[in-house]
Design a protein around this nucleic acid. Sequence first.
DNA 1: TCTTGACTGTACCTATCGGTACAAATATTG
DNA 2: CAATATTTGTACCGATAGGTACAGTCAAGA
Lengths: 186, 186
Amino acid sequence: MKTVHERADVVPLLAEIFRELGYEGTSLSRITERTGIGKGSLYHFFPGGKEEMASAVIAEIDAWFEHAIYRPLRNDDVRKAIAAMWTNVNDYFRSGGRICLVGAFALDDTRERFSAAIGNYFTRWIDALGAALTRAGCTGEEAQALAEECVSGIQGALVLSRALGDKTVFTRSLETLARRLDAAVQ
Amino acid sequence: MKTVHERADVVPLLAEIFRELGYEGTSLSRITERTGIGKGSLYHFFPGGKEEMASAVIAEIDAWFEHAIYRPLRNDDVRKAIAAMWTNVNDYFRSGGRICLVGAFALDDTRERFSAAIGNYFTRWIDALGAALTRAGCTGEEAQALAEECVSGIQGALVLSRALGDKTVFTRSLETLARRLDAAVQ
DNA sequence: TCTTGACTGTACCTATCGGTACAAATATTG
DNA sequence: CAATATTTGTACCGATAGGTACAGTCAAGA
C-alpha cells in the first residue's frame, strides 16, 4: 500500500517536528519515523533538503501570522484586532504547550540560515501592533515601546512556561500584557 | 607538543559552544575544532560524554547565578541586590549578545534530558526575587507576579534582540523592567 | 485505454556522529 | 631519579547523518 501526499499537507507535519526537536535535532529518519513519509517524497517536495523544509515551515508560519494577526492589526478596529491577537496567540501556542519556532531558531546558529525571515517575522509583528496603538492615540514612541514589550513578553512567557512545565505561567503572562495594552488604548 | 588542561578550564569553553550551536548542533568534532581539546581529554574529564558536558555547563551557570544573583536577593539589602541583579544580568548576557543556555535548552526536547536542572534554575531565580520584593513591602502575590514577569521578560528580550540582531532591544527591555521593579519597592 | 507527469520506496553513497581502547606523553610524588 | 597518576593523540567502531539515483506506482487527462 502507498499513501499519496501533497506538499501543502506535509508542511504542518514538519512544523511540529522542527518545533519539538529543533533544526539540528530533526533528522530525515525521524521525519520518516513520525510521518511515514519517505525520503523519496521529501526530496520530491523539497529538493533543497532539510533547509528547504524548514524554510517552507517558516513561510507558512509567517503567512498564518500575517493573515490572522498582522493584517487585522493594521486594518481593523484597534480594540477588536488586539483582542483577537490575544485569543489567537493563546490558541496558536496552545496556552504555552507549543513553542514559537521562529523564536527558537533565533537562539542558536540556526539563525544564520534564516536570519532574514526571522527578523522579518518579528519586525512586522512589532510594526503592525505599533501602528494599531498609534491609531488608538498613543505617541509613536509609546506605541513602539509597548509593541516591543508585548512581542518580547510572549517569547519570554513561552520559554518560562516550558522551562517550568507550567502552562499557567503563559496564560498569566498574556493576561498581564493584555491589561497593559488595554490601559494604553484606555 | 601537548597542551594540558584541567576540567574546570574546559567547562566555560564548552558553555560558549553549546550556547552558539545548541545541544544537538554541538558535536565532539566541533568542540575539538574550536578548543583544540581532543576526544581523549574530553572523555577523560566527562566520562558520560556529551550529556555530562552539558550537565557540567548547566551546573556552572547555576552556581554563578546562585552566587551573583540569587543569594544577594535573598540576603542583602533589597534595593542594592536588585540594582546588582540588573547590572550583572546585563553584563552576563553581554547586553543581549549572549543567550541564556538554560532557556534555549527549555525550548526543544533537550529539555527532557535536563528538566530538573532547568526548572530549578528558573524557580530559584523567581523565588529569590519574589522574596526580596516581599521584604521590600510587596504582598506575596504581587511579589510573585513581578518576579515572574522580570525573569520571563529577560528571556523574551534575549530572544527578540537576537532575532532582530539588535542589542538595544535587550538593554531597553532591561530598563523597562528595572523601572517597574523600582516603582514596586518605591 | 494509453500516456503523461506527479509521487513513492529502496538501495546506495560518503561523511560524520557519539563513543571506546590504549599506548605515549606529561606531571606529580616519594 | 624512579615510580606513580593524570592527561592526551590516534586509531578505531557501529550507527546514523544528509543526500542521490532510479525504477516502480499511481491518478488524471487525452
